[in-house]
Design a protein around this nucleic acid. Structure first.
Length: 366
DNA sequence: AAACACCACAACCGCGACTGC
DNA sequence: GGCAGTCGCGGTTGTGGTGTT
């Protein structure tokens, strides 16, 4: 009694504050290999000087493969407003209805933009409450028109994806779900939209905007950008092992290129470009590389990079058996003519050039 | 160019919920 | 049922970036 709650960790022994790219990569590599069954023990096992809570937060809010980054679209903002009306500050519930968005992100957007916007609106239309209701349920154009002049610059600065029409369609579908006023129905059905391959084209717009915002896209040719990796997605197979998916939380959305921060992608891109000059994947003549194989090769290169990185940062030990095959996704392996059962990273590694550790150090210092 | 104010967002903190023993 | 360990949520804070004076 009187001692209060025990701290989750010894604060003097852990690093706090912003995460460095090195820490991010360490965490990513560890989770790719081992998953995150136990956040508390994860820092110790991965060699991170962070508390488990901090690792969890960083992964969920920032590093997770399916996290969607970039500005919220008007449609998403509308959805948040409506969901907040239904659920209040239940950010995780709201987030579950917005694929790729985290509760923290939604909370921030609400506190910094939407709350202010609504308070301005409500003060302007305090004599007519139905005005607020109509602004919430109206189309995006009417919403933007109803905004006060104070918000206009912000709105203009928003990134409107080129695939807005698709996104509009998705949001309309989502709004239909929201209107049913059943939490469970909302989350289940929205998820089913995402997971049902037959409806994949509808959900793709959500994720594609993520890709378009990602630095990773700079590695693609214009042709590849027109035909995003997602358009080549196979229907999701529950047994599909994919290194780019969260290990203990299968989700085909995770097949998308990661949307990490600039530093990390710079590092990845630098490494991939350097390595691809030296490494030619066996059995795939360079002049025959085309979509989607070329993309697959790039992803495989990235996976190689992670493997190399894994060695560099001393995350030694056996690859978790359940994840071992995950380095080469099934759909990639068929396209590349590589048998996933026999594909061996160690063999692959031995055929590659030696990794110059100074590169890593230079990137980390950059 | 410097100082200041404001904003956005990543990260932290504390608590309740959940789970396994 | 009680307890301890862990997870997840929501509120809050800290910090870096940007705009303004």
């Amino acid at each position: 009694m009187g001692k209060g709650r025990a701290p989750c960790c010894d604060k003097t022994q852990v690093k706090r504050g912003p995460w460095s790219p090195e820490e991010d990569l360490k965490l990513i590599a560890f989770i790719q290999k081992n998953g995150h069954d136990n956040w508390r023990s994860l820092p110790k096992q991965s060699g991170l000087l962070r508390c488990g809570k901090s690792c969890r937060l960083r992964w969920i809010n920032y590093l997770r493969p399916d996290v969607k980054r970039g500005n919220f679209t008007i449609q998403e903002e509308e959805a948040i407003i409506r969901l907040h009306k239904d659920f209040g500050n239940k950010w995780s519930k709201i987030a579950s209805c917005l694929p790729g968005r985290t509760d923290n992100e939604i909370k921030n957007v609400w506190n910094t933009h939407l709350k202010k916007r609504l308070s301005i609106q409500s003060s302007e239309s305090s004599t007519d409450e139905s005005k607020l209701e109509s602004s919430i349920t109206s189309s995006s154009s009417s919403l933007s028109e109803s905004l006060s002049s104070n918000d206009a610059p912000n709105l203009a600065a928003k990134t409107i994806p080129s695939n807005e029409l698709n996104e509009q369609e998705t949001l309309e579908t989502m709004n239909d779900k929201i209107e049913q006023h059943s939490e469970k129905q909302i989350s289940n059905e929205v998820i089913s939209i995402i997971e049902d391959p037959k409806e994949l084209t509808t959900s793709l717009s959500f994720v594609e905007s993520n890709i378009l915002n990602s630095n990773h896209i700079v590695a693609f040719t214009p042709e590849q950008q027109l035909c995003s990796p997602l358009t080549n997605l196979e229907p999701y197979d529950a047994d599909n092992n994919n290194t780019l998916q969260e290990v203990d939380k299968p989700n085909h959305l995770n097949e998308i290129p990661w949307d990490l921060d600039d530093d990390i992608w710079k590092m990845v891109d630098n490494f991939v470009s350097m390595q691809s000059n030296e490494v030619q994947l066996e059995g795939v003549p360079s002049n025959q590389i085309s979509n989607p194989i070329e993309e697959s090769v790039q992803d495989v290169e990235t996976m190689k990079w992670f493997h190399e990185f894994d060695n560099v940062f001393g995350l030694v030990g056996e690859t978790n058996e359940s994840n071992k095959d995950g380095y080469l996704p099934k759909n990639y392996s068929s396209e590349l003519g590589v048998d996933p059962q026999t594909f061996d990273l160690d063999v692959m590694e031995s055929t590659e050039s030696e990794l110059d550790l100074s590169y890593i150090q230079l990137w980390l210092m950059a």
